[in-house]
Amino acid sequence: MPLFEVFVRPRRGLQHQHAGSLRAEDAELALQYAREIYTRRREGVSLWVVRSSDITASQEDDAPMFFDPADGKPYRDATFYELPSKVRGL
């Protein structure tokens, strides 16, 4: 029985968030099970289920290759730029 990952959108306007996993015979049943398991208390307004095997994930070993290039680029953040204290609305 395939493993599915469950994503729940807590409210309209928010993104779906990973809630956990479950096993189901197919996607349609996975959706039914997800409703029973992960949204008994109005935790969400929408559910996604994705076969875990369909997720391509970056590997831990590749983390430096993936994420190091973002290091040392503080100029991408607004706080990098100092403004004269009189300036408003920037």
């Binding site: 029985m1 956990g20 008994r40």
Partner: peptide, 24 residues
């Protein structure tokens, strides 16, 4: 509702064990 929750707890936990390769 309480007893249903307990069944749900079991399922969260079986799911967590399955991420380690255990079979139901």
């Amino acid at each position: 509702a309480k007893v249903q929750d307990e069944g749900g707890h079991g399922l969260y936990l079986y799911g967590a064990a399955e991420t380690l390769g255990a079979s139901r």
